[in-house]
Design a protein around this nucleic acid. Structure first.
Lengths: 214, 214
DNA sequence: GCCCCCGTCAGCCGATCGGCTGATGCGGGG
DNA sequence: CCCCGCATCAGCCGATCGGCTGACGGGGGC
């Protein structure tokens, strides 16, 4: 008898996506692979966390955009914290912010829905053994980020940006965050600098574009 | 022999979605229905237009967000103009702007990906005969819109908004559109009015939120 | 112990914005 | 023919913004 831990005969999967059609599609798609078994479906982050604990799947296929409730990043964080399952993110966007947050939350891999099905199967099998798989565009972005550590906003700057996205003026932002207008302006200047803009409208545009806000 | 035009033994479908995984999923899902046959797949709007003309499917399942190239609305417009196929929009968002544009472009139905698969099958069969099917949330929005004709932006106002989203100042917007600053300000005031905001940052936020811009 | 990042605050000043009032021209529908 | 929506423009004015310079304290890393 060998010491090598035998790969599970079947990889047990939990799907998490708020779109029923997507879930059904994935279910049908994965059904074509004999060594992959979908043991549960979740339509929300909360449900995914509960089901992951109950079903103890090998891999959770997680979308990041989940509509209502906690988002995929938070769900990933909780599931990964439990250590019960590896989370393989399968989503639409390859934004820096999304990728970073997902990885920081403990995702084992990050795939794009535009990926070929064979890649998905392979990534699932890898994830079941704790190995990382990244879609090519995602890998590129990760590399690029390593090379030039991109201006990431501080928590406080994100607070300011959130208020700004409500269309508030400096005075209102100051009141909302219990700081002085001067401080708001200081933060704004730094935000402009980091985002490469020089107006509030531009900042909001970039923020929405890069999905820097919830 | 009866005069009733027999429903096609099999409904012939063309899929259009830029995500391979989603296409594969739909393919597998639709494969479970004996009276539905997927005769082609397109990964872009351009491809969909070409394939629709060549394959003459009964129904084109069209996503609205297609990444590169023309968007789903434009693809819908061209396919519907040919009259070769009924276009059934299957997408993620139930935004007013998306729905309106898709319907105006000639879509036969509008389904959300969050819909139950049975609804999708039923909608496909309906669409094949030219009958409209709307997802419940979509139908609600359409009704709501009928009741209170919502502020829709004029073409010019959208132009202004687009420039604004680049973070440009009034002077630059004026130059970009070959009009005076006074005119820019007039348009902006009306845009604020329609969007229910009173700052440029707020306008950009609402615009991005409601997907008023490409 | 020192330094750097982060968050906080101040004052100044020119540029810009947003609201207002009012006006012109053009096209379509009643 | 008149009205109305759309696009264009003008001037005024107070409020706001954005850039700049400079400052202070706390916390983490070396």
């Amino acid at each position: 008898m060998t010491e090598t831990p035998p790969a599970p005969a079947r990889v047990r999967i939990l799907l998490c996506d708020d779109h029923v059609v997507v879930r059904a599609g994935l279910l049908a798609l994965l059904g074509s692979e004999p060594d992959i078994e979908v043991v549960g479906e979740a339509g929300s982050g909360e449900e995914a966390v509960v089901l992951a604990a109950r079903l103890a799947p090998d891999v959770v296929l997680m979308d990041l955009q989940l509509g209502e409730g906690i988002d995929g990043v938070e769900a990933t964080r909780r599931i990964a914290a439990d250590g019960t399952a590896h989370v393989l993110v399968l989503t639409t966007y390859d934004t820096d912010a999304d990728i970073t947050r997902a990885i920081e939350a403990g995702a084992t891999g990050y795939l794009l829905k535009a990926e070929r099905p064979e890649e998905l199967f392979a990534a699932i099998r890898s994830a079941a053994q704790g190995r990382t798989t990244l879609s090519a565009p995602v890998a590129s972005r990760v590399m690029a980020r390593m090379r030039s550590p991109r201006p990431s906003l501080t928590d406080r700057e994100r607070d300011i940006l959130a208020q700004l996205s409500q269309g508030l003026g400096n005075r209102d932002i100051a009141r909302a965050l219990f700081i002085s207008e001067a401080t708001v302006k200081t933060h704004l200047s730094r935000i402009y600098d980091k985002l490469g803009v020089d107006t509030r409208a531009g900042a909001v545009a970039v923020a929405k574009e890069q999905r820097l806000l919830p």
